[in-house]
Design a protein around this nucleic acid. Structure first.
Lengths: 317, 317
DNA sequence: AATCATTTGTGACGTGAATTCAACATGGCC
DNA sequence: GGCCATGTTGAATTCACGTCACAAATGATT
C-alpha cells in the first residue's frame, strides 16, 4: 500500500511545464505523458490544495493568483532539488573530503609518499590522513577507508588486499646481549616482550617448523599503542617485538635490530588490506579512486631475509 | 506506465526523517512505514543518485559528506514546499486580489455600495472592480467574477442568479414631444433608438400582449458602449432606449424619462447573474466568499410601474 | 565467549494509485 | 456552419512501492 501516494515533486514539475509551455498538450508531449494524464494530475494537485491554480478553456490557460505564486515557488524549488541531487550525485570527478585511517608504520612509509601524486590527480579532493594503530570504528571515526594489517574480523566491511607483509621477531643487540638469543619458541618464556595496549586480532606469535605450528609470546615488559612506538622500545632494548619487515627492514640491515627464531617463521605473513564499508550503496567516487590508486601504486616488497657471510642480515628480493 | 516513477519529495522526506531520528526503524514508526520499506527507499535514492548518503550498521548511522550536504538542502527544500503549498492552499480566510467585472449600471448602483462591507469582512482581500458592459472573456481579463444582465451563452461558466431586472422602454419628454409616443410596437419603425456598440445576446426588443409576442426596434440614431451612456443619450432626447428599471427608476419617478409601450411588456425581464469559471477545480476562497456575499446582500427590488392619478409614474413594491 | 535483542537487508508477493486508451465536450478559426 | 486542436471523463491496465517473512549482523549483556 503506497503510503506516500502524493509525489509532490512530480506535481510541481508537471505544473511548471504546463505553465511554461502554455498548454496541457504541449506539456504532455514534452513530458512523454498523455494530455489526459496531465489533466488529471493538475486536477489532483488542485483538489489536494483545495484551490484552483489554472483557469483553463480548451484554448487558453490563465494562472490564478495562487497559481502564479505557486508557479514562482515551484520553479525555485525544482531548481534547488535539481541542484541538491546533482551535488549529491557522484560526479565523474572525485571530490570532497576523504578521510583515511592507517596504522602508523604503513601510513608513514607507504601511504604518505603517495599522497602528493594522488592529490595532484584529483585536485577537488582534500585528504585527512589519520594514523592510529588501534582498531577503529569506521563510522565512529567518520573514516572512508582504513588500512589494516593482519586478519580481518568478519563484517560487512569490504577489504581490498594491498599487499603482504612478512612478520619478524627482532631484538636489539644490547637486549640480546643481556638476555641471550632464543633458539626455540619455548625459550620466549624466559624473555621479555613488547605488547600492545589495544587488543589485536591474533593473540600470540605464530611459529612454524615443518608441519609443526605453535604459538608463544614473551611476557610483555612494555606495551605500545602503535608499531612505531614498539619499534622504538625494541631499539632501546626493552624486549623482543614482532614487527612488519617493511617497517624494520632498514634497522635489520643496519644491525640495529636482529631477527631471532628465523628458522621458525619462514611463512609468517600478514595481509595488508584497505577496508571500507560494504556494497549496500554506491561507493563515493573519491573513495573508489583512492582505493584504486592505492592498489595500483602500493608496492610492498616482500623480501626474504638472508644471513650474509659476515653474519649480517640482508633483505633480498 | 508510470513515467514519473520517482517521487523525489517522498524520498527527501523519508531521508530527512531517518537522519533526524537517527535510525530506519524510528523513522519507519514515525512515518507509519515498515523498516524494510524505509531501507528500500533509502537504497533506491542512493542508487538513483549513484552515491552513498548514509553509512549504516545495525547500530549507528553516519552521514557521508554528500549525505550531510543533501540533508541540509533537503530540509530547506521540504520547508519551502510546505510553505508553497500552504500558501497556495485555500486558507480558511479569503485573501488575495479579487477581480470583479460588472456592467456599469449594476456595478455602480448595486455592487459598489456593498464593497466597503465586503472588504471590512475580509481584510486580506483587495478588490479590483472593473466596469464594462461589453462581453468579456474571463480568462483574457483575468477576472474572477463577471456580473452580467440578460441571457447567458451556454458555456462551461457557472452562473449564480443574483436577481431579476424588469426592462423598460423609455424616452425623454422632449423626445416624445418631437416624435410622438408609440402606441404599438410597430410604431417603433418611425422612431429613433439607442443601440449598443457591442453585440448583445438578444437582437431586438421583445413585446408581449396576451399570448402574442413580437420583436421590434427603432432604427438606432446613436449607439452607446454601456448602459449609463445610453441613459444619458436617452435623457438628452436622442431616442428611445430599453434600459433596466433599477437603473432608471429614479429618472422615471422624477419625470425625466417616460415609459412607453407599457401595455406590451408586463413580463419583460432579464436575469442578473454572477458568472465564474466552472467546477473543474475548487473555487478560490475569495471568489466563493464574494459570490456568497453578493447573493446574500444584493436585493434588486423588482417594483411594478404604476401610473398615478396625475399621470406620473410610480415604482411600487 | 556466547546468547539475546535490536536493527538493517533481501526476495517474493499483492495492492492500488496513476497512466493510458478511447470517446466525448468545447472553443477558436476558417 | 464545419473542421481541427485541445481539455475532460470513464474504464481497463500496469507497474512501482510497501508489506511480509526470513536472514544477517551488530553491540550489550551475562
Amino acid at each position: 500500500m503506497a503510503r506516500f501516494d502524493t509525489n509532490r515533486s512530480a506535481e510541481m514539475e508537471v505544473f511548471v511545464r504546463v505553465v511554461d509551455l502554455g498548454g496541457f498538450t504541449q506539456a504532455a508531449r514534452k513530458l512523454r505523458l498523455t494530455p489526459s494524464g496531465v489533466s488529471k494530475l493538475i486536477s489532483r494537485l488542485e483538489a489536494r490544495l483545495g484551490s484552483r491554480l489554472i483557469n483553463r478553456t480548451t484554448r487558453k490557460l490563465t494562472l490564478t493568483e495562487e497559481g502564479q505564486a505557486f508557479y514562482d515557488r515551484a520553479v525555485r524549488i525544482l531548481s534547488e532539488m535539481e541542484e541538491a541531487e546533482r551535488e549529491a550525485a557522484s560526479g565523474a570527478a572525485p571530490r570532497g573530503r576523504l578521510t583515511v585511517n592507517s596504522n602508523i608504520p604503513f601510513g608513514m612509509l607507504h601511504v604518505m609518499p603517495l599522497i602528493p601524486r594522488f592529490l595532484a590527480q584529483h585536485p577537488d579532493v582534500t585528504l585527512d590522513l589519520v594514523l592510529t594503530d588501534t582498531l577503529i570504528d569506521l563510522m565512529q571515526e567518520r573514516a572512508d577507508v582504513a588500512i589494516r594489517v593482519g586478519p580481518l574480523r568478519a563484517s560487512r566491511l569490504v577489504a581490498r588486499k594491498l599487499g603482504t607483509s612478512r612478520m619478524v621477531v627482532v631484538g636489539a643487540p644490547n637486549y640480546l646481549a643481556r638476555f641471550g638469543t632464543p633458539k626455540i619458541p619455548a625459550d620466549l618464556a624466559d624473555h621479555r616482550g613488547i605488547g600492545w595496549t589495544f587488543p589485536r586480532s591474533i593473540r600470540g606469535w605464530s611459529f612454524r617448523r615443518g608441519d609443526h605450528t605453535e604459538e608463544a609470546m614473551p611476557p610483555p615488559a612494555a606495551r605500545a599503542s602503535d608499531g612505531e612506538a614498539a619499534r622504538r622500545l625494541c631499539l632501546g632494548g626493552v624486549g623482543l617485538a614482532r614487527l612488519a619487515l617493511f617497517h624494520i627492514g632498514p634497522d635489520i640491515e643496519a644491525g640495529r635490530l636482529v631477527p631471532v627464531l628465523q628458522g621458525y617463521n619462514p611463512g609468517d605473513r600478514e595481509d595488508i588490506h584497505a577496508v571500507y564499508v560494504g556494497h549496500t550503496a554506491p561507493l563515493p567516487a573519491r573513495v573508489r579512486a583512492f582505493i584504486d590508486f592505492l592498489a595500483e601504486h602500493v608496492k610492498v616488497s616482500d623480501p626474504a631475509l638472508k644471513r650474509a657471510g659476515d653474519g649480517r642480515w640482508k633483505l633480498v628480493g
